[in-house]
C-alpha cells in the first residue's frame, strides 16, 4: 500500500495552478448544476483539490485531515437528503412551493458566477491575501465569494449547506497557512463535522414538501 508521500508524488503532475482551476470549476458547478447529487460530487472534488493544494503548503498530514473531513461531510449530506426524501427523479424546479430568495434562472446564475469570478480576480490583485501564494489566495477568495453567492441564492439547507461549507473551506485555505497548530486543525475538523450534522438535521426537518434544493 502506498504511503501518503508516495501518493502525493503520484499526484505530482497535477500542478497547484491546475488544482486552483479545478476549484473554479467545482465552485461554478455547485452554483449552476440542478442535480443535488452532482453538486455534492463537486463539493467532494473541492475538498480533494483543497487537500492537494494544502499538501504543498503545510504538512501533508494536515491536508489529509481536510480531505478526510470532506470525505465524511459529503456522505452525511447525501444520507440526510435521501432521508428527507430526495430521490433520483427529484427535479426541484418542478416543485410548486419554490422558496427562493430570488427567482433565479440559469442565465442569471451564469452571469452571477461570471461577476463573482471577475470580483475574485480584482480582489486578489487589489488586496492579495497574506501568508499564502497569490494563486492560492485567488482560490481562497473564489471559494469564499462563491460560497456567499450560494447563500444569497437559496436558504434550502441541501444547497445552501454546500455553499456554507464551500465558503468555510475557502477560508480554511487561508487560515491553515496562518495557524498551523494541530489543536486548531482538529478544532476546525470538529466544527466542520458538527456543522454538517446540523445541516443534515435541518435538511431532514425541511423535508421535501417545500424544498427547492437547487435554487
Amino acid at each position: 500500500m502506498p504511503t501518503l508521500y508516495q501518493l502525493l508524488d503520484q499526484l505530482g503532475p497535477i500542478t497547484r495552478e491546475l488544482a486552483i482551476l479545478g476549484l473554479f470549476v467545482t465552485g461554478a458547478l455547485i452554483v449552476l448544476v440542478a442535480d443535488w447529487r452532482a453538486s455534492l460530487l463537486a463539493l467532494l472534488g473541492q475538498y480533494l483539490l483543497v487537500g492537494l493544494i494544502l499538501s504543498r503548503l503545510v504538512f501533508p498530514e494536515v491536508a489529509l485531515i481536510k480531505v478526510l473531513v470532506g470525505a465524511l461531510v459529503c456522505p452525511m449530506l447525501y444520507l440526510a437528503a435521501r432521508q428527507a426524501g430526495w430521490g433520483a427523479n427529484q427535479n426541484p424546479r418542478s416543485t410548486s412551493a419554490v422558496r427562493e430568495l430570488f427567482p433565479a434562472g440559469l442565465s442569471f446564475r451564469v452571469l452571477a458566477v461570471t461577476l463573482i469570478a471577475l470580483l475574485t480576480i480584482a480582489l486578489s490583485q487589489s488586496y492579495p491575501l497574506p501568508v499564502i501564494p497569490p494563486d492560492v489566495g485567488l482560490g481562497s477568495y473564489w471559494l469564499m465569494l462563491v460560497g456567499l453567492l450560494i447563500l444569497v441564492l437559496t436558504e434550502h439547507p441541501v444547497k445552501a449547506g454546500q455553499g456554507l461549507l464551500t465558503g468555510i473551506v475557502g477560508f480554511e485555505l487561508l487560515y491553515t497557512s496562518i495557524e498551523r497548530s494541530l489543536a486548531m486543525v482538529w478544532m476546525w475538523a470538529v466544527v466542520n463535522l458538527l456543522l454538517t450534522l446540523a445541516i443534515a438535521y435541518l435538511v431532514v426537518a425541511r423535508g421535501i414538501d417545500t424544498s427547492e434544493g437547487n435554487s
Binding site: L151, P157, A160, L195, A198, Y201, L202, A205, R206
Partner: peptide, 20 residues
C-alpha cells in the same frame, strides 16, 4: 440549531440564519 428548530418541520429559516 436543533433547539431553535425545536422539532418543527417545514421552514428552517431561524436555525439556518443563526448558523450562517
Amino acid at each position: 440549531a436543533p433547539i431553535v428548530q425545536g422539532g418543527q418541520t417545514g421552514s428552517t429559516r431561524a436555525a439556518w440564519r443563526l448558523l450562517v
